[in-house]
Amino acid sequence: MHLAYPAVLAVLLFCVGLYGVLARRNAILVLMSVELMLNAVNLNLVAFDVWLRDTLHAGQALTLFTITIAAAEIGLGLAIVLLVFRHRGSSDIDRLTGLAEPHGPEVPHGPDATDARPAPAADDEKAEATA
């Protein structure tokens, strides 16, 4: 089989995934799109492994790794999406803009104000521990 077929298929898969990541609103669909992109990469890995006749089959081994990590990642990602959905009642990525730069005057966060509190508590704990 000519290398062009898997390569073109991988490009198509990757572009579908990319479109999904950039354009879909639902967080779960975005995750699925990420999986598509990963699998496009996997396809490339296997195809080039064969084409290069690699005796160690590094491409195939790396594919196994990628699949494993993708499984773990999707587990974590779905858990986060689930929690976000429970918390906000929505998994619409357009509305999840908590990382945006807050507008209006900046409130300086002095490190002293936050650090002052825990220190006595730690002392209390130490005192209790020694008592």
């Binding site: 990541v21 999840l96 803009t97 945006a100 730069e101």
Partner: peptide, 10 residues
């Protein structure tokens, strides 16, 4: 920096 991850990725 508007908080929309997809814009960043774009």
């Amino acid at each position: 920096q508007n908080g929309n991850v997809q814009t960043y990725l774009s």
